[in-house]
Design a protein around this nucleic acid. Sequence first.
DNA 1: TCTTAACCGAGACGGTACGTCGCGTCTTTTG
DNA 2: CAAAAGACGCGACGTACCGTCTCGGTTAAGA
Lengths: 200, 200, 200, 200
Amino acid sequence: MTTQRSQDPRLDRSRSAILSAAVALLSEGGFKQVTIEAVTARSGVARSTLYRHFRNNTELLAAAFQELLPPLGLPAGGGPVRQRLLRLVVAQAGQIESAPTMAAVVWMATTGLSADTPADNDERSRLGALREHIIENYRGPFHTVLAECLAAGGAPSERDIDEAAAQLVGPLLFNALITRRPNDKRYCARLVDDFLANHG
Amino acid sequence: MTTQRSQDPRLDRSRSAILSAAVALLSEGGFKQVTIEAVTARSGVARSTLYRHFRNNTELLAAAFQELLPPLGLPAGGGPVRQRLLRLVVAQAGQIESAPTMAAVVWMATTGLSADTPADNDERSRLGALREHIIENYRGPFHTVLAECLAAGGAPSERDIDEAAAQLVGPLLFNALITRRPNDKRYCARLVDDFLANHG
Amino acid sequence: MTTQRSQDPRLDRSRSAILSAAVALLSEGGFKQVTIEAVTARSGVARSTLYRHFRNNTELLAAAFQELLPPLGLPAGGGPVRQRLLRLVVAQAGQIESAPTMAAVVWMATTGLSADTPADNDERSRLGALREHIIENYRGPFHTVLAECLAAGGAPSERDIDEAAAQLVGPLLFNALITRRPNDKRYCARLVDDFLANHG
Amino acid sequence: MTTQRSQDPRLDRSRSAILSAAVALLSEGGFKQVTIEAVTARSGVARSTLYRHFRNNTELLAAAFQELLPPLGLPAGGGPVRQRLLRLVVAQAGQIESAPTMAAVVWMATTGLSADTPADNDERSRLGALREHIIENYRGPFHTVLAECLAAGGAPSERDIDEAAAQLVGPLLFNALITRRPNDKRYCARLVDDFLANHG
DNA sequence: TCTTAACCGAGACGGTACGTCGCGTCTTTTG
DNA sequence: CAAAAGACGCGACGTACCGTCTCGGTTAAGA
């Protein structure tokens, strides 16, 4: 229903050629490398074709990030709650220090700041989609783990999940972005313990 | 004492003309507006002169941010520890949502990511100085409050301060950057209470 | 036949806009005035477009000179050989003292001297074309006249033409360039007479 | 009488430091390299000092050329007139193809063409002096040889000398500047023979 | 001998021009 | 009619020199 089928197969071909070129450039050299010219050169797609799919460098980049970003997902394994949570936080710490996620977050913020055209419907939605994607990367796993925490009980509330994410990932982000202190495993453990002390 | 007196007063004049133009553009339209061309046009300073002071758009922007960023400082007022801490966190929340600080953090991250030349001594130091400035904005006030917390006791440890900042500001940053949920006063209060429950 | 039809008419439009602006500047103020900036300003053509046509100030100037230089051609009229030759030499003297030709010769020499990149194929060819153009301006008319001189006989040899040009135009050039003595008609006549005395 | 004694020995020191740096750059890399900045850097002389001696890049270059240009002089040796003249012409051909002389002639022409300020007394005189120097390089030796030609007879007339120079050097210049054909010894011999046939 | 004026180095300053890169729009020709 | 190819106007970048100007420090010449 929501999946829009392309009428012309060429549209798909060119779109994916563009995206894979963009993703390649993005992961190789950071988002500064994802210029329209580099993407067209690399994909063999014409400028005009690219602009038929993405109205902007910004849109293109948003799509490329969305393509690139790993789905994360939940680290496998059972065990007591503390252990599961710790595994998750450590995973997040690892991911947050990896180039692509960090780049995505930062780039999105940059782009959001210099909002030239406040309400360009389509573009907004693309950025919004990327944002959703990223948020879900954080919320999703916490949702799962927290649900398991609540024993037999029902689903955790929205707010609980959001705050758990904020409280556990926020400090990691702070360190990565500002202090540049590494988020080692012991630090993650302290975060988890503090959290459980208050919400366990 | 350590202030190096400039031999030529023109150095000061042009430098401050440049900086004030840059700061004006920065606060008016965000860092995208701080182009070399705009700054020279606005300040009446010649291109070559600007490049004598700042080798780069990047350096210029770092200096402009440093000039622009408010010294923050500690919200005045006494009272019990919880109250002081809360006032501080609320202030941080306010600041973090204000354009300049956010822009600085994000821009710095962006710039840090696309580090073309890893060891351009001078430029690095400028960026480093900006980073220090920003970090100090967070650490400083926490240092003060935490010192007061410890009753008659000695100074808080480095690690305590850093972790307090990370744990209290991190979530604010997470929300501002990723979820876009507002950091209202009640949320700040929960953060402070959780923190005190574990470290009080 | 050999004329390559341009696919895009804009190519012709912009190219000729650029060239006519350059030629105008060249004839008005000498080649020092033919800067990229002045040409773009005057022609209304964008910088990047100009650089698509001419990779260089040098290339642009070469093209402009070629456009500007009068085709010279042979002064009309019959009569005995001496008279025809004299008419030609006087014409050359006139032309050599005119700004454009002189400027072209001198500029070309200058450019040739400071040959930064000895084998930049395209640029070389442009300079070469200009050189050919200039040489032909001298050789051509002498070829014609000399052919007529040889009564019914065949075409004059390459060497004869070249040496005639050198011997008759060289002194004019010498005076124009170095001694600044005017090449009046009587001097031209002496040159022709000397020449005919040896080669008649 | 005409030698102006400097009052302050420092003036001499700086002047010659400048000139030798300029000459070095000139002979190493052509006149394009003789920039004010390069000369000050190389000579260790300050900008302001340089401008005390030479008001211009142009003046500086004129002086440098004058310093650099070899005095030429007359090839030694006796023998019959034709032989002497031939030696002279061959020498001129050699010199005219050497970088410095050619560069001087061309540069002077260039500069003369783009005469920004038609009557800047001092600068004019410097250019004029250079021109005289160059002219004398051609006239001088011819004067000598021609004087010897005239057997016991008196000095050759101005006009004879000038025309001899024009007729013998002009073709060399023409080839060097325009056709790029080498002026080999046989060609020089033809020139001399033609000349003597008419003026012997 | 002791000023004191000039010359000096260093280099900042406002300019002008360069050649490059990227953008987003457009036009033409081919499958 | 999409796609490839690429021209176009635009705006910004960082560089190179120019000729003018300010600054202290040194040094030669005249009192």
